[in-house]
């Protein structure tokens, strides 16, 4: 029952992300737009390009959606509102979200189109740049919580949220999460002006609708993960826990969506270079700082 509720909440959240995205893009707050756009997309033709790798082509959007949903299953909205409180939750969310890469590789290779293929391989490069900046900050979070349980991680922030306790980790995680969700300025795989939408280029109709839904869910999942790992999860005064979770998740989502509009897309070479020459040393420094901090002031 709980899991059904959470999946419904997740879909509702994805819906809100779509509304928010349109609001930020054109300044009009319209709640019906995503529904209409979705129905229109279902009504459109869903063309399969000639001679594709059909298995890859069909699997990719589904795998992306599964990956985003499974990632959200270990994140608590309130102490009780969690589907599976896995003992290795903080690791599991990584494991689930790595399949975003696999899905994009399939979507890139499957249709046998140049734009899509380049987009897919670009995303593999992007993963190489961001992956360590996801796992290393999570390690530092787990050090403080002494557990990989996501509920335990939230509880460990009762005194002080991790955003204050380890701001460096938060910054790295936030940026890396945007890169994971291929949001601008990290939308190298779906760049419209460079690759005519890249991995999304060959999808149309209902398949594109699934792809878009998966992307929105993914943004939702990552915002929820940021809240759980760094913003104290459901904790907060006055309001009930679910309200705090919801508000924080929406705020993080808005920040993620807004940031990309205000700057140009990052160059792939810069992303890789900064991820490795700046990001990884900083992430290691973060682990060290948290290590010292945990020992002197838990």
């Amino acid at each position: 029952m709980t899991s059904l509720l959470i999946i419904l909440l997740l879909l509702a959240g994805a819906y809100l992300v779509a509304v928010l995205e349109a609001w930020i893009a054109n300044g009009r707050l319209r709640f019906a737009t995503p529904v209409l756009a979705g129905i229109a997309m279902l009504g459109r033709e869903s063309i399969v390009p000639r001679q594709p790798d059909r298995i890859f082509f069909e699997t990719a959007p589904v795998l992306l959606l599964i990956s985003a949903i499974l990632g959200a299953m270990v994140l608590p909205l309130t102490p009780d509102l969690i589907t599976t409180d896995l003992a290795t939750g903080a690791l599991f969310i990584n494991a689930a979200l790595v399949y975003v890469l696999v899905a994009l590789l399939m979507a890139g290779w499957g249709p046998d189109g140049a734009y899509a293929m380049i987009g897919g391989w670009r995303f593999l490069g992007q993963l190489i740049a961001y992956a360590m900046l996801i796992v290393m900050p999570i390690t530092a979070v787990a050090m403080r919580a002494e557990s990989l349980l996501t509920t335990q991680i939230v509880v460990s922030q009762a005194g002080l949220w991790n955003i204050v306790y380890q701001p460096l980790g938060f910054g790295l995680f936030f940026v890396a999460a945007m890169a994971l969700a291929f949001l601008p300025p990290f939308d190298l795989a779906t760049a419209n002006s460079e690759l005519a939408s890249g991995v999304e280029a060959e999808y149309s109709g209902v398949r594109l609708a699934v792809f878009r839904l998966a992307r929105l869910t993914l943004v939702m999942t990552l915002a929820a993960a940021t809240v759980v790992f760094y913003l104290g999860g459901w904790q907060g005064p006055w309001l009930p826990p679910w309200a705090w979770s919801g508000l924080k998740i929406l705020a993080v989502t808005a920040a993620m969506l807004l940031a990309g509009r205000l700057m140009p897309r990052i160059r792939e070479a810069d992303l890789m270079a900064w991820g490795w020459m700046l990001g990884i040393p900083l992430a290691l420094l973060n682990i060290f700082l948290v290590g010292v901090l945990v020992l002197v002031w838990p």
Partner: peptide, 18 residues
């Protein structure tokens, strides 16, 4: 063996993609 399983699921995805 949960830790081992999740680790396998996570690591193999990146390594095999590479």
């Amino acid at each position: 063996a949960e830790f081992l399983g999740v680790l396998q699921i996570m690591m193999m995805a990146t390594e095999m993609s590479i």
